[in-house]
Design a protein around this nucleic acid. Structure first.
Lengths: 372, 372
DNA sequence: GACTTTCGGGAAAGCGCTTGCCATCCCCGG
DNA sequence: CCGGGGATGGCAAGCGCTTTCCCGAAAGTC
């Protein structure tokens, strides 16, 4: 018996389904959306049938309003096209999907003011959780913005929201229930990297870092320096540039000039071991620096060694292979999201929990390997 | 006169604001959220004041429900961590931001069934627009899924939604009002690339394509072949692999074997021009293939030329520079989004409009440049 | 067999906001 | 001086769904 498929011009509502099934909206709601109460099998069948016929799609907004939980996860990144963030985003997205939630995306360029705004927007949408990736800033001029961001987050948490922060705590945020942190051991890893590099490189070190106050960058720099110190080496000079390829390139040009000067001074003897090892605070900067060196006629690792941080996937095919620290970015995204959703119980004492442990791995490749 | 900042434990509602301001919720609504009617200045001031005191954040869900428009833009991609998609996502995000909308992200791996589900979810959330990036599939086994996807999209459009599709039309989708397409001239560009390559390369061509039925890939292959034909060259052999780095790598290994065989056969004479030019249907595959060749001891462009498609930003530092076709991905994302939002009027005749014009640019670099 | 428990279903009260409509009030021309 | 028109504010009816009661009936308990 073929039933005429009704193709409604407008989205049909629960009430219509209920009417068609000859039950009350309450019952229809109970059968179609998991409720504690399970209506009888006969009724259920009728309702489901009616829903199918009408092509019923529940109005998520209305549901959210009624049960004040939206099934939304907010994700805040600096720039979704940056491979660092898109890798994290993939992790977040995966978990969200598993948990039948949708992710709401906001990109802020790292400006605390924008981040605050994004949090507010997420709060307005009653997002169940917010994941903030991307370095916090400790710059004085951002102090204000940070404070507002922290306040906004606090309020969000106080209203029952959960926030997962990747990397380091939001400056000034309280130790609230619902506030989770996925700590990334930038400092230790950078120290470990420095140690390894110091073992094989006897010359100078120089660091290309992001702008002062970018915590991730600062942590990595500090870690690298302490690693150097532990190896009995003098502290490295730090060049500041913007935390992206362009910044790396710019700094790379400076360094090229410097190498050139050194060379002419020392009467170019062939086969000399490169005298400089560059540590860029992230892979993208490292690539930029490498490009700059190349543009000036220098080769890595022949004329300078170079290492980065993150082990961005797309960059693994870069030649010479970039020495770096592998960070499980996708996993980090997953963990940050899970900490806010999955373990509604996981951290019953919850607030500011030590959080899941993330480890990275120093990965040495050709870019820091001098071969005679 | 310092007023004690009231810090409400729960998010405050419009009604509370109204009460504090001594007006009706209607009025409060009118002043706080752009309404056609502008209440008097005195009242407005009081309401705004009250809202500030209470730290009022409108409940977007409720607003959406009441005015059935959510301020949401749905974005469907295969994989957000793929630089191709993340570049597009950036464009989408930008426009959304400009228009004070938020983007809702869904990743589907390209499965029509998942895409359909994503569309349904977006529809449930009453997204104002949906942008679908990522190749459609014309494979027979996806026909079913495609049909369902098309149906879901149709229904969404019929309910007043706007959808913007990147690349090629959804197979089987009707020519509906609210259905926009940003066409990417994959075929022409691939042909142009083939032409340029044919001009400088006299040997064989081989194509590494995605799985058969992936329209983007197929278009590029077809274009390349026709470009070859136009240059009086025989059609190239097509190797099929998955549309990502791994696929490229795999195919690259096969080709390496082939090159090796050819070499031993022809009694290795040094300095021979590479006999093979590889066209990979996208940059990531090209990189994979290049890595495979390298792993087998071959060098690009010494032993084989190679070209890709997309001009992924992160890959521009790859050495040797990868010949490719530059696609303005971010712009494509922007256009797709704008077509659904900005020009609510732009295409008043609207449906299936020719859409904005996207052009790419053949970009030759070292990877296809044989130097003696 | 009379009583307390379930249990399946419905009525209705919201969730927080927008908006059509009505009641005022003021300003102005006649 | 009075009536009409244009502002301006409030009332109340939803938007579509969930959920708390409540009620009748079926099922258990001595």
């Amino acid at each position: 018996m073929l039933v005429e498929q009704e193709i409604p011009v407008a989205a049909s509502t629960l009430t219509e389904v209920a009417r068609l099934a000859g039950v009350s909206p309450a019952t229809a709601s109970r059968v179609l959306n998991g409720s504690a109460r399970k209506p009888g099998p006969g009724v259920s069948e009728r309702v489901r049938q009616a829903a199918a016929t009408l092509g019923y799609i529940p109005n998520a907004q209305a549901q959210a309003l009624a049960k004040s939980s939206s099934g939304l996860v907010g994700l805040i990144v600096h720039d979704i096209a940056d491979p660092y963030f898109s890798a994290i985003a993939r992790g977040v997205q995966e978990v969200a999907r598993e948990q039948h939630k949708m992710v709401l995306l906001a990109t802020t360029g790292g400006t605390p003011a924008d981040e605050k705004e994004a949090v507010a927007a997420f709060a307005a949408r009653r997002a169940d959780a917010i994941v903030i990736a991307g370095s916090r800033s400790s710059r004085p001029e951002d102090a204000n913005g940070n404070a507002e961001l922290a306040a906004e987050l606090d309020r969000y948490c106080r209203n029952g929201g959960h926030v997962g922060v990747v990397g380091q705590p939001v400056v000034g945020a309280g130790a609230l229930e619902g506030y989770h942190l996925v700590e990334v051991p930038n400092e230790q890893l950078a120290a470990a990297l420095a140690g390894k590099l110091a073992a094989s490189h006897s010359g100078d070190f120089v660091i290309i870092g992001g702008p002062e106050g970018l915590i991730t960058s600062d942590d990595r720099i500090r870690g690298f320096q302490s690693g150097l110190a532990a190896a009995g080496r003098p502290a490295a000079e730090v060049l500041r540039a913007s935390f992206n390829r362009a910044g790396g390139y710019e700094a790379g040009l400076q360094l090229a000039q410097r190498i050139r000067n050194a060379r002419t001074g020392e009467a170019a003897r062939g086969g000399a071991k490169p005298n400089l090892c560059i540590f860029a605070a992230n892979d993208v900067m490292a690539i930029g620096a490498a490009a700059a060196l190349r543009s000036q006629g220098f080769k890595v690792p022949r004329d300078a060694l170079i290492a980065g941080f993150d082990d961005i996937e797309t960059l693994r095919d870069f030649r010479p292979g970039l020495s770096t620290v592998r960070l499980p970015l996708e996993e980090i995204g997953r963990l940050a999201t899970l900490s806010t959703l999955g373990s509604g119980s996981g951290g019953e004492d919850g607030h500011h929990d030590g959080g899941p442990v993330v480890t990275g791995q120093v990965t040495l490749r050709r870019s820091t390997e001098w071969t005679p």
